[in-house]
Amino acid sequence: MSTIVLLLITGLGLGALYFLVASGLSLIYGLMGVLNFAHGSFLTLGAFAGWEVARRLGADSWGVFGLALVVGAAVGAAFAALTELLLVRRLYERHIEQVLVTVGLALATVALFEGTWGSDPEFIEGPAWLRGTTDVAGAPVPNDRFLAIGAAVLVLIGIVLFLRYTRFGLIIRAGVENRAMVTALGIDVRKAFTLVFAVGGAAAGLGGVLASQYFGYVSPHLGAQLLIFAFIVTVIGGLGSLTGAAVAAVLVAVLQQFANYYWGYGDLVVVLLLALVLLVRPSGLLGRRA
């Protein structure tokens, strides 16, 4: 029983990280049709920014950790907004080229991170509470899992509220539905593009700081590791659907944890799940029917 609880909560924590990456991917794809391969780099840069803050100001206080989270999210958002303004925008409506540009950016930035911070993982420290465990139904659950889950839930609520109750949210939702119509009504959708990139980048940067706590290290390949599963989550959930991404993130991560523990091939199970979902519902769990 305690094993199951432990696996479940760990899976939820991993699912939270997947969601933080996949939410941005899904929003960007839904609005612009761009599959963003550089999203992993947003995450990695956010993680390194948070790590630098913690290293310089003393890692074990909560204030510094909170600052690291904010800085990570801000750096991720800035990087993402610059990517949209400088690279993606120039290739408006040319989806393959947009994908290619983000691929190039991902290759170049990962190399740059390796050159700057070295290719080996840097082990990190944080507030003492995060290293400890809490007893849940007899299972010692590492505390950083709760933090990841809480942050992901907050981000989900935040993005949903933003989309539902703000003017920009309205434009983004309308743009996902029918971009040509929004443009025809005289609304500049391009601002919404930059904004969506920034929001996705902020979520990824935040995810980066949390992921480095979850795994216990930062490395230039942190983003790429998570990105592939975030892609799978996005496709399973349905490209462009935020709720779908949340459901699929939990499903994929929990399944992966259980399969890893009992069978040892969790990653394969996830791929099989993807194949199965695409065979039965090619548009994903909550995606619009193609």
Binding site: L100, V103, G104, L107, A108
Partner: peptide, 8 residues
Amino acid sequence: FILGTLFV
């Protein structure tokens, strides 16, 4: 890095 930049 050089190859990625060249590609972009």
